[in-house]
Nucleic acid binder design. Structure first.
Lengths: 113, 113
DNA sequence: TGCATATATTCTAATATTTGAATATATGAA
DNA sequence: TTCATATATTCAAATATTAGAATATATGCA
């Protein structure tokens, strides 16, 4: 599960507002589904579908406490992704030295005729 | 562009094998499209479509050198995402102390009756 | 046992993404 | 100018994702 393709699958699974929110909350601690209904503004079946996607992607797991399903975060990669998207970013990367952005310049790579 | 929704859009745009590969190469330096044809196993128009998506998402930009379009990486968020997916990850996060994984246990959150 | 609570599953319609095919544009060189 | 090279755009078909509706399951409690 350390190959690039698997990691891109993880990215893809994470890339949804509801799922990011779930994962963010789980990164703070165990939550059961009815807790999630409090901070998510979508239907219970829909939450369940997203949880199912996250489970199948092996990003979360749960234990059972009576009729509660207590979910928690499992993936280290996801934990790091969350940290990255929670930071804030000022401005763009510096452009290449050779030339100004979206203007003419001289290509610094080698190129066949 | 620092709100969560915009960042999730970035995640989504990045989450494609061809686009990740393009971005990884650009993170190493400027590349023109015909350079990309060497490491990508897809058609030229398809590369162009992915570049267009990355441009519209404001993740890359380019300068023009004669008939070459020289692309470079622009987004700090993407640069950090790439670092995260390039690392490798051993094992899962430790489960919650209260109870074993996918087994019964007692929920540590508060829950209404 | 029967009921209410907590959660999951299945199906479907709407929508979005992806790719290939065809074609267009722009530039440098002959 | 004309041609070849480098790259982009448009369209359509195939496929995937998403959300809602309806329904199912499992558990604790009366």
């Amino acid at each position: 599960m350390n190959d690039l393709i698997s990691k891109i699958e993880v990215l893809k699974t994470v890339s949804h507002p509801v799922r990011v929110t779930i994962l963010q909350e789980l990164s703070k601690g165990v939550k059961c589904v009815s807790d999630m209904q409090e901070f998510l503004d979508v239907s219970q079946p829909n939450i369940s579908q997203h949880l199912s996607a996250l489970r199948h992607a092996n990003l979360i797991d749960y234990f059972i406490d009576g009729r509660l399903r207590c979910y928690f975060l499992k993936s280290r990669l996801v934990a790091e992704l969350l940290e990255v998207i929670e930071k804030d970013y000022q401005g763009d990367l510096p452009g290449p030295e050779c030339c100004p952005v979206t203007k003419k310049g001289t290509y610094s790579g080698k190129h066949k005729k």
